[in-house]
Design a protein around this nucleic acid. Structure first.
Length: 489
RNA sequence: GGCGGCGUAGCCAAGUGGUAAGGCAGUGGUCUGCAAAACCAUUAUUCAGCGGUUCAAAUCCGCUCGCCGCCUCCA
């Protein structure tokens, strides 16, 4: 079975057939570096991280390009506000971006090109377009002639007449057609400037991606991705530029992910309703954010809330707890004993990987894939719970294999990458730091309670236990004494 | 106005023609002096509403209602 991918351009899923056998060339639009990244950016990065990881797991050699836009109107404006240069500003936020990506455990792309480092390629592409009659110069600017490219609108499913009827397009008298867009902008005093055949200026927003993808991936490549908000105009314009210049099909599969919303409203800088990645990571484990993001299909909207993150934390704890419990199992069992595991359960465990792959092959349906992992965990837990004192070796082996498969599959999503026991300890440690209690105080209270229990003073014993619980410490009475742990969300 | 998407249990969320995955929360149970944790079991005769196609529909078609996004910078 092959992987099926939903292609924005065709509006349907189709089997992934790569240009070159076993290889995938992927270009993703990265950030415009002028501010901290928010959860929406995290979703974009995580979705494509998952896609890259999964494609590699499925045997593809993936060349992954993710660019930085380090020159544009917003950067110029913000730099002026902060009384700094565009270069300093964009470099600062690129560094922040890298820190955020590292904290989220996102694999670095093969290449991360910047617009400002590709001026020769950009200028060359614009010259190609002018030569082909697809671009024209007006004063210091160069515009793309949308009426000269007859596929214009085919990606976003629009046509030029409809878009003009929208009336939100401002009329610029210099342009031949209201929808024509800038390839090159003559610079105003004080703005970053590069020399060009059309005078000093800077590139328009869309041309950089056409130039850089062409340089690193060629005229034609397999997958181009980004957020849904990039479909129009950004990707529509990129496609027009690239196909106009080369005459070849620019991209085979266009992939666009949905937005992160807050209270059902799109998270965006202009609305001011965003949380930065660092704010969220300060409170929740990076893998919890991952689990949250992957708990819905990448094309659907995803509503951020604290409650939703806490759900994800609980889910992640369930997964890690299962793995930790399986690690505690004895290494050897009874070689003679027959398996005590029902056939249906055995089959469920044995087919975890197969079912996981089937879900992921279906347009990266991580929500369904995770459902299979949770179902597997449920069965593994059930079997483990009912294991006899001297379990059959066969059954121990099945449980261990099931846990290992679960971990391997989760790894292809960047989940369950930590040692289970250490992860759980670390999470508890993080919470303990926020509590007004030291381990010594807890131990002392337990000693006091143990004495009370020995004299069957249940009232006092329960009181001590309740007081600790109110502070977030759970006690576990066992044969070997009383252990404590921090209450996880 | 144009284009696109969504509406599944208390909440989140899979499921694109064959009789409702999974997670969180809740409830019952195992364990325990009682608990907690963990685990198990259980929770939608029904998929926004109304029609239609079909032996069969959450899934296809039509209409209605509600929500969201893009058309301007945006992941």
């Amino acid at each position: 079975m092959s992987i099926e991918i939903y292609n924005t351009k065709t509006g349907q899923k189709s089997p992934l057939v790569t240009l070159e056998e076993g290889k995938i060339k992927l270009y993703v639009c990265g950030i415009t570096a002028y501010d901290y990244c928010h959860i929406g950016h995290a979703r974009s990065a995580l979705v494509f991280d998952m896609i890259v990881r999964y494609l590699r797991y499925r045997g593809y050699e993936v060349t992954f390009i993710r660019n930085f836009t380090d020159i544009d109107d917003k950067i110029i404006k913000r730099a002026q506000e902060q009384n700094t240069t565009c270069e300093e500003l964009s470099n600062r936020f690129i560094t922040m971006f890298h820190e955020d990506m590292a904290s989220l455990g996102i694999l670095p792309p093969t290449i991360e090109p910047k617009a400002t480092e590709h001026l020769p390629e950009i200028i060359g592409l614009i010259e190609d377009l002018i030569r082909k009659g697809l671009a024209y110069q007006v004063a210091a600017d160069v515009y793309f002639r949308v009426t000269g490219f007859n596929g214009y609108g085919s990606l976003s499913g629009r046509n030029l007449d409809e878009m003009q009827a929208g009336a939100r397009v401002s009329i610029n008298e210099k342009k031949e057609h209201p929808m024509d867009f800038a390839l090159w902008k003559g610079s105003k005093p004080g703005e970053p400037t590069w020399e060009s055949p059309w005078g000093p200026g800077r590139p328009g927003w869309h041309i950089e991606c056409s130039a850089m993808s062409r340089k690193y991936l060629g005229n034609s490549f397999d997958i181009h991705g980004g957020g849904k908000d990039l479909i129009f105009p950004h990707h529509e314009n990129e496609m027009a530029q690239s196909e106009g210049a080369t005459g070849e099909e620019f991209v085979k599969y266009w992939m666009h992910h949905g937005f992160v919303t807050i209270k059902e409203e799109k998270m965006s800088k202009s609305l001011g309703n965003f949380l930065t990645i660092r704010e969220v990571i300060a409170r929740f484990a990076p893998e919890a954010l991952r689990l949250f993001i992957f708990s819905t299909h990448y094309r659907n909207p995803l509503d951020y809330s604290e409650a939703a993150l806490l759900d994800a934390v609980a889910g992640l704890n369930r997964l890690y707890t299962c793995l930790a419990e399986i690690e505690q199992l004895p290494a050897t069992g009874n070689d003679q004993a027959a398996s005590a595991i029902p056939k249906t359960d055995r089959e469920k465990i044995e087919t975890i990987a197969e079912r996981f792959r089937k879900a992921m092959d279906n347009d990266f349906n991580s929500a369904q894939a995770l459902g299979h992992l949770f179902e597997g965990v449920k069965i593994i837990n059930k079997i483990r719970q009912h294991l006899p004192g001297k379990p059959a070796s066969l059954d121990l082996q099945l449980l261990k294999q099931g846990a290992e498969t679960t971990r391997d599959m989760a790894n292809t999503l960047g989940l369950l990458t930590e040692n289970p026991t250490l992860y759980l300890q670390k999470e508890q440690g993080k919470i303990l730091k926020t509590l007004s209690l030291t381990p010594e105080e807890i131990e002392n209270a337990i000693t006091e309670r143990t004495t009370a229990r020995e004299t069957k003073n249940w009232t006092l014993a329960d009181e001590i236990r309740d007081q600790l619980l109110a502070k977030g410490i759970e006690l576990k009475d066992g044969p070997a004494g009383t252990a404590w742990q921090v209450k996880l969300p």
